[in-house]
Design a binder for these strands. Structure first.
Lengths: 336, 336
DNA sequence: TAGCGTCTCTGAAACGTTTCGGAGCAACTT
DNA sequence: AAGTTGCTCCGAAACGTTTCAGAGACGCTA
């Protein structure tokens, strides 16, 4: 590995001068610059970010901690953040928690030892203990995305989850449905809680009594949500419409319908939260509440960069993004 | 940020002793250990990986460069590699090339300045220039995954692409099809080339003449592959079966069928390469050649770790993994 | 008692940068 | 002619670790 010293020696100048040329942090004579550039080229010198980070006290790296990169929803977040990082000159350290609190804590600590300049975090189900650890664990700016945490003032950018499920219920009701089921995730996760609240509020707004059996708890995973849906379908008076509350949930729901022999939308209407490229490639094309996921991720990244640079100060802000209803073919008006 | 020095001072011992305790790299008295551990705890000291990396000459970080994390196929790779890294005590630096050679080169260089210990790379369409740069750009072990590069001896783990498309054609022929179309990606990418070869070879093996019009070139992206498929469907004597050669391609193909009013498999059979969770959640459930993607990724990671540690030496090896045919409902025997 | 291992621990050098006080020199001002 | 200013460039300190030669203390043997 060739170092600054090698370049300096080869060019016959001082180490400091080479550094100045590389970062052009001060005016230098054309002659010096030429000599240095030539030496760099001849030796194939590449600066050492590790040494640089040590000296500068910052790594130009941010950490991204999310539950599961395999989930297209989080992959979309990761993709948008990577682009933002690239544009801003940051590197990206990726961690997958698998919704495992222990792993999440480990990842958080990793961020600390790795001295990242900031963290973008999709928090999992953290108990009080976890939140304390979180506050302690990281001494750099954090911005939350997608999910949020109670009693924590971090910058955050999230979907208007209540509006999303409220809107879905509204749409169902407008189409004549009144027996509306929901497949929802674990209540420990903020979005599950909020999406359920939106559902309940919407029913109340439409003067529809809540039927507890219509609320099926899954796990935001295809498998448990499949079974949750199966439960809904086995009901004597089953719902005429089901709302799915996440990408993975939608897979579970649709799989259950297919396996149990229900046609969608003929026998039952389904709408979900989260859009995806293949939502229009198969039958039925899915009616969904789409979230501006790329924008949200971009915004989270910008906010983090602002915090890091000090351009943004002041109290934490949470940006709530509005969802968009995309009516397609998995839903239809209820005709008696 | 509290340092080793702070801990040492607080515990009333030398810096070196603290280091030895932390890494227990030499025997120390119980008393010393206790004092140090207490001080670490009281000060909330966290070791600085940057300084450590500088001193040790390695970062315990590997780089992952792939075309598009948003593509579930690559996301699956990333997920499996993250798990392997976590288990082996490595951090993961993620880069998205978007199949842009310029960006890919930039990412490669980033790996070098970041002093990662190794790189796992899904190479894009690189010309000769690129390969030279690649060799020069990185001085650490590289292992290729998914795609490969001509005239480059890096460790690699790839699918048996010829067998995958050959097997798909075999299956179609066994089902009575003889007019078999293919939607294929850009020939610059190794897997596109190999998958096309498998297709051609299989046709030859079955004594079926190649119909050039049945070979539709897309881009391994939903959009161009949609149009490529539309071209196939507009043929006077259109294929009775279409094989899709990637995840994104399958989306394009199925979307085209849906939009153009063809029912699958009734009007036309479709089978693809790459399985995905939602392949069984919608209609039709897709017949696919699945690849053992998680195993492949794990293997790539292990191979890289072995190269880094020096446990693996010798010439580059490429591991070719066999695909598995999963017959579902997007294909059916041809009845005349 | 002197010499010698053994066991702990200390202190300093080194990793590759950035940064900054100051040296050297030429061109001005007075 | 002496002093001042401005422009380049140099050299060394510092960032937080790891590592290693060696200092001290202790118990043993001869």
């Amino acid at each position: 590995m060739t170092t600054l010293r090698d370049v300096a020696r080869h060019a016959g100048v001082s180490i400091g001068s080479v550094s100045t040329v590389i970062n052009n942090t001060a005016p230098v004579s054309p002659a010096l610059r030429a000599k240095v550039l030539l030496a760099i080229d001849e030796l194939g010198y590449v600066p050492d970010a590790v040494a640089r980070s040590l000296k500068m006290g910052r790594t130009r790296t941010i950490g991204l901690i999310l539950p599961d990169i395999t989930n297209p929803h989080f992959a979309a977040i990761a993709g948008a953040i990577e682009i933002a990082c690239d544009a801003a000159g940051y590197s990206l350290l990726l961690c997958n928690t698998m919704d495992n609190p222990t792993k999440e804590l480990r990842d958080l600590r990793l961020m600390r030892t790795q001295r990242v300049d900031g963290v973008i975090l999709v928090p999992g189900v953290g108990d009080g203990d976890y939140i304390g650890e979180l506050n302690r664990a990281v001494s750099v700016p954090i911005v939350l995305i997608d999910r949020t945490l109670p009693g924590l003032d971090f910058d955050a950018v999230v979907l208007d989850n209540r509006a999303a499920s409220h809107g879905l219920v509204d749409y169902f009701v407008r189409s004549g449905h009144r027996r509306i089921g929901i497949v929802i995730g674990p209540p420990g996760i903020s979005i599950a809680k909020q999406r359920l609240e939106g559902y309940l509020q919407a029913l109340a707004d439409h003067d529809i009594d809540v039927e507890p059996a219509y609320i099926a708890h899954g796990g935001f995973q295809p498998e448990p949500d499949y079974h949750a849906t199966a439960g809904l379908l086995a009901l004597r008076r089953r719902p005429t419409a089901i709302m799915s509350t996440s990408y993975h949930t939608t897979i579970g729901v649709m799989k259950a319908l297919l396996d149990k022999g229900f046609r969608c939308p003929n026998d039952i209407s389904v709408a979900g939260i989260d859009d995806f490229v293949w939502a229009t490639a198969f039958s039925p094309k899915m009616t969904v509440m789409a979230q501006p996921i790329a924008d949200m991720a971009r915004h989270a990244a910008q906010r983090l960069f602002g915090r890091i640079s000090g351009a943004i100060t002041g109290p934490a802000e949470v940006l709530v993004s509005p969802p968009t209803l995309l009516v397609r073919e998995s839903t239809r008006p209820l005709v008696d």
